[in-house]
Design a protein around this nucleic acid. Structure first.
Lengths: 185, 185
DNA sequence: ACCTGAACACCGTTCAAGT
DNA sequence: ACCTGAACACCGTTCAAGT
């Protein structure tokens, strides 16, 4: 009979982690960056220490929150890699990326800062997405559709830094168009 | 003999205010947004209450800090209003604006957020600058050099929101070029 | 191995007492 | 009119004691 692997977390640990992420998602959506660690722990019904055990820093918690959407965006980049118009594919993908944090006020700038911070929890969470979208971007650049003096990290950081004010009812930034036009070769 | 006018602050009040702004400038340059109100009061050699009396909110203090450079930029916009190439004048002015907060880490995003927040201390501090640069912008738009679907506040907010990472040694953002290109009609 | 909550530190904010 | 610093509240962070 094999021993339980060390990879397998205890059932209560798993439950607590899920409750914390769920609570954080709701609170961040409501209050944005004003959300305190204490709020999250209380809403999840666990002690503060438990929150710290699962997420040693605020960035770790935010990373867990955005992970799901980033995974979706990674898959989306893969789909678009089949496109025969990589320039438009980059546009389309960035429009989706621009919209991802609409429901979590303030997270946008946190992600914008974390993206470029090598080794940070957020940067780690973004790695697969950066790799896949990076391929798409390079294809568009090789095809001569986009300027070549901008790399993936810079581009994602700028789009993630677009202000949350001035959004239309669908959450789109009027400025994304300016950036996309400016990117064209 | 005329009475002292109520506009005239007491000498010690004036001295304290100056000391607070000077201390804040140094501390923000060193530590950015991590600077605490307590730090500022201590470095200026005054009590916490005095800081609160002069600057009821953090935004009021930041507004005082950036006021000097904003006044410079306002004058610069006036100079450029004589230009016969308003499109290039807008470019030149935005390049200078992009550089203003380089010495104060973190202030950039504070200003970016405050700019669009009607009635905020920062928005008020920006009013003259917005008016003068707005004239320049409108001239460039009327001349057909720039797209007309972006207004002053949006434009300044976006440039002020450009990430502080990815700056060249002179503090220029590689992304300002992208924005400027995207702005062209 | 994981959870809890008390305990400590730090800082924002207020305000009674001073000059 | 303005200044001071003590006092309070809130929250981030740690950790000894539990299961």
């Amino acid at each position: 009979m094999p021993e339980a692997t060390t990879q397998m977390p205890r059932a209560d640990a798993r439950r607590n982690r899920d409750a914390l992420v769920a609570a954080a998602a709701i609170l961040f959506a409501q209050q944005g960056e004003a959300t305190t660690f204490e709020d999250v722990a209380r809403a999840a019904g666990v002690g503060k220490g438990t929150l710290y055990r699962h997420f040693p820093t605020r960035d770790h918690l935010v990373a867990a929150l955005v992970q799901i959407r980033f995974d979706e965006l990674t898959r989306r980049a893969d789909e678009l890699n089949d496109s025969d118009d990589p320039g438009s594919a980059v546009d389309a993908w960035l429009r989706e990326f621009d919209q991802y944090p609409v429901r979590s006020r303030g997270l946008r700038s946190t992600v914008g800062i974390g993206l470029a911070d090598r080794g940070s929890a957020i940067a780690t969470a973004c790695l697969p997405m950066k790799r896949r979208f990076g391929q798409l971007l390079e294809r568009a650049q090789s095809a001569g559709a986009l300027r070549t003096d901008i790399d993936v990290t810079e581009l994602l950081t700028v789009v993630a830094s677009l202000p949350e004010t001035f959004r239309d009812p669908e959450g789109r930034s009027p400025f994304l168009d300016v950036v996309l036009r400016g990117l064209r070769a």
